[in-house]
Write a protein that binds this DNA or RNA. Structure first.
Lengths: 143, 143
DNA sequence: GAATATTAGTTTGATTTGTAACTAACAACA
DNA sequence: TGTTGTTAGTTACAAATCAAACTAATATTC
């Protein structure tokens, strides 16, 4: 058996997971401690805050989240009074979800935190590295 | 409020998670269906197969896995007869873990699969992109 | 060498996730 | 209309994860 160069750290699914894990911890601490939110909750909040009101289904598609996950996150956020849903009259299965005033405040805070957290991470890279990294990740998600 | 360029897909922890998720699915299918293994189990197996026998503690360190996770994975792999542990006599808290013959067969199979899976992913990138990507991920893990 | 502290690893109970079955509303078509 | 199919979302149960307490072995300190 010949000397083999393929290392675990070079295996993309593994390396991506490790990097995702490493970078998530810091931000997670923030939304968990300050707002008692879970990862999926944060994502749902962010989607609504960033892209405006939409249905749960739309969030599933955008965020690649399973409908049960979204369902639970929406409920949790409703309990926290960060979002509210109004049923659509032309199709009563659908609810248009939107952030409450309080929800928008929380979003604004998390948004700013995310932004500076990201900026701090970006400092480890050159402009070019950052571009390549973004491009690669984008490609991978679309596979 | 001015037009704002900071997008969720550009938020590194999020983008990394999405990419990790997207690339993991295919490989996961393999080790789950063929060997009934969980993610942590696969990782532990891979560590032992790639880097030789070591203690659970060493795996924790190398793989950044919590000891409870490793403990459970080791038990599961022992049940499947993929690994066995022999206690060290100078410190009986420690067990040297190593793959069984069967474990090495499974490792070899998964290793080859991982390798070609990774090669397939790599085809989406130029040599240079690939290099930058690896370098960036490595940096992020070490933060 | 007895008391205390650390370390490796396991177990336990609470939380979270995943899967699949379910309900309710709508759509298609006979 | 009524039967069948599809879609949005929920619920229920099993599986997995996390945090913290625990056990057993070793190290340290008095």
């Amino acid at each position: 058996m010949t000397e083999d160069e393929f290392d675990l750290d070079r295996f993309l699914p593994y390396a991506l997971n490790q990097a995702a894990e490493a970078t998530s911890v810091g931000f997670q601490k923030f939304y968990r401690q300050r707002y008692g939110m879970l990862r999926t909750e944060w994502r749902v909040l962010f989607h609504l805050g960033r892209y405006g009101e939409m249905t749960a289904k739309a969030i599933c598609g955008r965020a690649s989240l399973h409908k049960t996950k979204v369902s639970r996150a929406v409920n949790a956020l409703e309990q926290k009074r960060y979002l509210s849903g109004t049923p659509q009259q032309q199709d009563r299965r659908l609810e248009t979800l939107s952030l409450t005033r309080q929800g928008r405040v929380v979003y604004a805070d998390l948004y700013q935190t995310a932004k500076s957290y990201d900026a701090a991470l970006a400092e480890n890279f050159t402009e070019q590295e950052r571009e390549v990294l973004n491009r690669c990740l984008e490609k991978l998600v679309k596979l």
